[in-house]
């Protein structure tokens, strides 16, 4: 078995939340992804045992959703929005600038596993277009220059934890709405930081 006992305990805790085991499949896939940076076949086998469905059924579900990755992601997953509000606010140039800096095409990861780049559909930050997410932490009102700086900063600082408010303050611009009080929680890999699945962390800002 590929999972440590601790992780299996966590998984069982999550399964407990639902009337039927299979409902926990989504959260368990996030656990798998936090462990490896993608959904490995080993994890699929593990999960199929935990929720009582076949491996290919797990695979079928995992591959349906774009946030479950089939290949290992870098430490920072850069998701640049290209949907309509961002598109008409020149997200192209942000995309180009990120691509230039990282040298990556869509869905690629660099050899050092620092960045994974992807063009994504609407991330609900249309008022702050063009917008980007780093490990699902939203940064709004970017410009090509700011996005470049952000990538540089990430590459140099290598923060353990990505926090939306920190990035926004450093590199962001116009926002969809007032974010209000500063939030120091964030995520540390290509999974959303979320308490229920134990992927949310706090940072001293």
């Amino acid at each position: 078995m590929s999972w440590e006992k601790e992780l299996i305990d966590k998984a069982n805790e999550i399964i407990e939340l639902y009337p039927e085991k299979r409902s926990a499949l989504g959260p368990l896939l996030y656990l798998a992804q936090e462990k490896d940076g993608y959904i490995s076949n080993d994890s699929i086998i593990q999960i199929s045992n935990l929720v009582g469905i076949t491996e290919v059924q797990v695979k079928s579900v995992a591959s349906f959703y774009s946030m479950y990755k089939e290949e290992q992601t870098g430490k920072y997953l850069l998701s640049v929005c290209k949907s309509i509000s961002c598109e008409i606010n020149d997200s192209r140039s942000v995309i180009d600038s990120v691509k230039n800096f990282t040298g990556l095409e869509n869905y690629e990861t660099d050899n050092d596993k620092v960045f994974t780049f992807e063009e994504v559909e609407c991330i609900g930050a249309c008022g702050g277009a063009p917008a980007v997410q780093v490990n699902y932490e939203t940064v709004e009102g970017l410009t090509p220059e700011k996005s470049l700086q952000m990538c540089e900063w990430l590459k140099e600082e290598r923060p353990e934890l990505v926090v939306a408010d920190e990035l926004q303050e450093k590199f962001g611009g116009v926002k969809s709405f007032d974010w209000a009080i500063k939030d120091n929680t964030g995520s540390s890999y290509s999974v959303p930081g979320f308490q229920n699945i134990g992927t949310a962390k706090e940072k001293n800002l």
Partner: peptide
């Protein structure tokens, strides 16, 4: 009752397949 063949991916990329080792 032996679901060993399934849809993988979604949308236009959807395909049927089995799990690599199964």
């Amino acid at each position: 009752g032996d679901p060993l063949i399934e849809f993988i991916q979604r949308g236009n990329k959807t395909q049927v397949n089995t799990f690599p080792d199964e």
